[in-house]
Design a protein around this nucleic acid. Structure first.
Length: 255
DNA sequence: GAAAATGTTATCAT
DNA sequence: TATGATAACATTTT
């Protein structure tokens, strides 16, 4: 699950805010008794971290690759990792990692400005952080949760396709305007993802992820694991430009 | 039916 | 002690 999906969950679970946990159950090892009778005070997301803020602690849920949830219904056979029952409904979470964080001050723990879905998102800070990693491949940069919190592999592939950038381009070699475009589109596509996911049309809007043919060029895509975080990249070598350092710059000159 | 994938963190080893 | 490798989680799609 990528960042935008958690924002959708936050909206779907909003009716539970202000309600008391009547029953907490599930396969998770976390101390479920701890939150019984606590009121759900707030729901927040930091990229792929989902935060349920209670009276004196917070539950952090990560849905990883296969996690999902059912609100006011449950999976026909699977056992939930964590179920919360309130007076107005139940919330079942599956295949996720759940953990209790002591305290409720998430502002002290999370930097919201790095989250592409957050209103506090700061392109300027992103740019500054990127400048500190001139040798990083753009493919790794977009997946780096400290740089583009909430971006996942689908968003990565679609962003590079949109801005016509080869995923193995190097941060330090990007022309300033191209860097601007990368930062801008990381957030912009994430909101498209959010809207399409909500209307159930996300997959049909994919132009690169899992695709075989580039519709701009009518040529086959390259499918390759790129970067140090070797996730699948789908790209067109004809229209997606590879930005690499010139031989005599970017690194110490060897003579 | 095997393999890979919308991903990260805890733990172990060096 | 710091860094890096490995295990763990566990379902759907190709």
């Amino acid at each position: 699950m990528e960042g935008p999906s958690l924002v959708i969950l936050k909206e779907e679970a909003a009716p539970f805010i202000g309600k008391k946990v009547l029953v907490a159950s599930g396969a998770s090892k976390l101390d479920k008794d701890r939150i019984i009778n606590q009121t759900l005070r707030d729901l927040k997301t930091w990229g792929k971290h989902f935060l349920m803020v209670f009276d004196d602690c917070t539950i952090r849920i990560h849905y990883l690759m296969f996690g999902n949830y059912y609100i006011n219904s449950r999976h026909p056979e699977k056992i939930p990792k964590l179920t919360l029952e309130f007076e107005n409904g139940e919330w079942n979470n599956y295949n996720c990692a759940a953990k209790i964080i002591e305290g409720t001050d998430m502002d002290a723990l999370y930097d919201w400005s790095s989250d592409v879905m957050n209103e506090a998102w700061s392109p300027a800070k992103a740019r500054k952080k990127l400048a500190a990693h001139p040798h990083m491949l753009v493919s790794d940069a977009l997946l780096d949760q400290q740089l583009f919190t909430g971006v996942g592999n689908i968003i990565k592939n679609e962003v590079f396709y949109r801005i016509k950038m080869h995923p193995e381009s190097v941060i330090g070699a990007l022309p300033p305007a191209k860097l601007t475009q990368l930062i801008k589109e990381a957030r912009n596509y994430s909101f498209d993802f959010y809207n399409w996911k909500k209307e159930g049309t996300l997959r049909k809007h994919w132009l690169a992820h899992t695709k075989k043919i580039c519709i701009r060029c009518n040529l086959p895509f390259t499918k390759k694991h790129t970067g140090l975080n070797p996730r699948r990249s789908f790209f067109c070598t004809n229209c997606q430009v590879l930005y690499t350092p010139k031989d005599n710059e970017g690194t110490a000159v060897n003579k």
